Amino acid sequence: MAVLRAHDRCALHPAPARARRADRGAFLPHAALPADAAAVRAGRGCDHRERSPRQRLARVGGRGDGGARAPGLLPVAGTPRDPRGLSVEAQDLAQYIEPRLYDIAYSWHTADIPFWIARAKQARGPVLEAGCGTGRVLIPMLEAGVDAEGLDLHPGMLEVLKKKAAAAGLAAPVHLADMRDFTMTRRYMLITIPFRAFMHLLTTEDQLRALRCIREHLESRGALVLNLFYPSLARIVEPGEEERVEREFAHPETGLPVTYVSVKREYDRVRQTLRAVMELRESDARGYAGAVHRHRVSLRWTYRFEMELLLRTAGFSRYEVMGGFDGRPLERDTDEMLWTAWKD
């Protein structure tokens, strides 16, 4: 979601040892879906509500835009609602991590993939991943034989995904679409939003639009599964001006050292948003500092009972939350919130 500026591609940076190593686990400010782009088909009618198949075909009772479109594809229109960018803005898309660098930054993160594959197989029906990015989760699902599709707002991410899938001999059915407002011809037994992608929705309105649209695309008794970090007090009151090493790992192609650094973090405790400046710092074969790639990311955190209200307001009457991918209960504010909501 970024086109790196000239100085980002070639600038040298002091050795990463200056940055303070995080005492806790790596902070992942990711999601495949970008944070802040021009409002997409805000809708002139009522928001997403459950409609009968006949109403959907007749375009009755839906978004009210009246225009036919191919499944998943949305024209971009409108302007940002808030000068602080608390809906999706094109300028933040341009500052997000470049697609070719995404897999470098997150190639090491594979611990959650067995969980998503297992849930997809248990669904016993079609699966849709919202915010599929470059296919970190979707491609392993396809390799496991899951009937899965993906959608993402960023075309560059999807191009990388398609190339990776083709290299693996896979057909990857993916759609350029926004999780807040999309239309598919199928209904799904499982819709997933892995890797905290839901946190890129920066307003309550956008969160509800996404949840309602997703619920509309679920089969009866189908489920939505997503994960979020719990907004612990220690996290949101920490000083954000000091550099912090989030992760050190080997480049997946060259084997050379790479350091992922959180340069700056701005916590808005009223709006419940985090805006972070991140750098991917490469080293050369001699161990000297090499290329530095900077990008920005914006997230909104959501509390447990706030999430319950969002799900209920969006029409989900049954849901549960766990404290991690191992199925343990949510008991600590350092746990990962793993939500499942069913369409009954």
Rank of each mutant, 00 (worst) to 15 (best):
P257Y: 01
T259R: 03
S232N: 05
Y260D: 13
P231W: 08
V245S: 05
Y230V: 12
E241F: 09
L233R: 12
G240Q: 08
N227K: 02
P239W: 04
T259C: 14
P231G: 01
P252D: 03
V258D: 00
E241K: 12
T254G: 00
P252H: 00
F229H: 13
R235P: 01
E248S: 12
R235I: 08
S232H: 09
A234R: 12
G240M: 08
A234V: 11
P231M: 01
G240L: 07
T254F: 04
V237T: 15
P239F: 05
E248L: 06
V258I: 14
E238Q: 15
R244H: 04
R235H: 13
N227Q: 08
H251N: 15
R244S: 14
T254E: 00
L256D: 09
P239A: 04
A250N: 12
P257S: 05
Y260E: 14
E243A: 12
G240P: 07
Y260F: 15
E246R: 10
P239S: 03
A250V: 07
E248V: 13
G240A: 05
L256N: 01
P231S: 07
V245C: 14
A234L: 12
T254N: 03
V245N: 05
F249S: 08
Y260T: 03
E241Q: 13
A234M: 08
E246H: 13
I236K: 05
P231A: 02
R247I: 00
N227G: 05
V258H: 02
V237H: 09
T259Y: 01
L228Q: 11
E238F: 05
G240K: 03
Y230H: 15
L233D: 11
E238C: 06
G240Y: 04
I236G: 00
R247N: 12
E253S: 06
H251Q: 10
E248M: 11
R235G: 01
A234Y: 07
E242G: 03
L233S: 09
E242T: 14
A234P: 03
R244P: 00
V237S: 11
G240S: 00
L233H: 12
P252C: 09
S232A: 14
G255C: 04
E246L: 14
E253R: 13
G240N: 04
G255T: 00
P257N: 02
N227L: 03
E243T: 08
F249E: 09
I236E: 01
R235C: 06
L228P: 01
E241A: 15
E238R: 14
